[in-house]
Amino acid sequence: MINFQYVRANSIADAVNLIADDPAAKFVAGGTNLIDLMKMDVEQPTKLIDISRLALDKVEDTAEGGLRIGAMVRNSDLAYHPAVEARYPVLSSAIRAGASQQLRNMASTGGNLLQRTRCAYFYDIALPCNKRTPGSGCGALAGHNRMHAILGTSDACIAVFPSDMCVALALLEARVHVSGPNGARTIAFDAFHRLPGETPQRDNNLEPGEMIVAVELPSAGFASNYSYLKIRDRLSYAFALVSVGVGLEIADGRIKAARLALGGVAHKPWRDTRAEAALAGQAANEAVFRQAADIVLRDARGFGHNNFKIELARRAIIRALTQAANGTPQSQSNKKIA
């Protein structure tokens, strides 16, 4: 860990100005990931700009019937917020599937979108990693890749994005509000995170100096038929091998609309609109769910240790769709798979 300066931003404008003055600086909110990375010398910011006390901690209704979540709303507060529990239970469930209570108490909404991968090669500066040190190679390709991606990979990087919350945000079609040196803009959730391609060092499409100020949810919350199913190596406090977020609109036993997103399988929350389209208008049964799973996984590719994820994802998609269709979402406190 290197020595660094610490400053506290007083406003969004102040934060944006502070980082514009110092490209080697980083924003810090909950610090649940950045501080670890600094201890490992993976991140070496010379200045931390603390944005945790900015007045971005509100959850407010929008005129369109949605919800606007301030970037500094803590994960725990969001998961148990009455409006989220009632209208967007898949988001509440996904947050509760992640990390531990202590981490969720610290972690912020904006910070959750900006988590770095948990790839071991990224974390160990003695090992090659194109994401950490472009051009150094990918240690995971021929190494320990049990946790790694099966979709949207590149020869440069097979890391996965670790968030649970973002899987729910992806299927809910959230919008990310950012502020930066060139003013404010809004980014569709699917356009926020990137696939690795040749530039795995870039996790997302934020421009230098931009900060997340809010995440906005549209009105559709799929509160009746949803599930967040996370499959992991132990029953809590473990990153997903595969996770599946589902939201369905069902009428007369048929699926009117479907949303489907996966975690633990790609460099971003993996939403598949073709699979969603294939579900729409169909009866809610296993054959239909299997077809959707096949569509999601049509281009899936394993790298040795993680080959099992393809079949696991197929089964998890079918199960999560079944749970959602039956109105029996996966509990996050009872670890028995519903």
């Binding site: 948990r118 071991a120 090992l127 240690g139 190494g143 190596d233 132990r234 809590s236 406090y237």
Partner: peptide, 20 residues
């Protein structure tokens, strides 16, 4: 290949948690 332990921390080296 590198002779290094790649889960040298108690987040990635799994022991049972309460839920288990």
């Amino acid at each position: 290949t590198f002779g290094r332990i790649v889960n040298a921390n108690i987040a990635e080296y799994h022991v049972p948690v309460h839920a288990d």
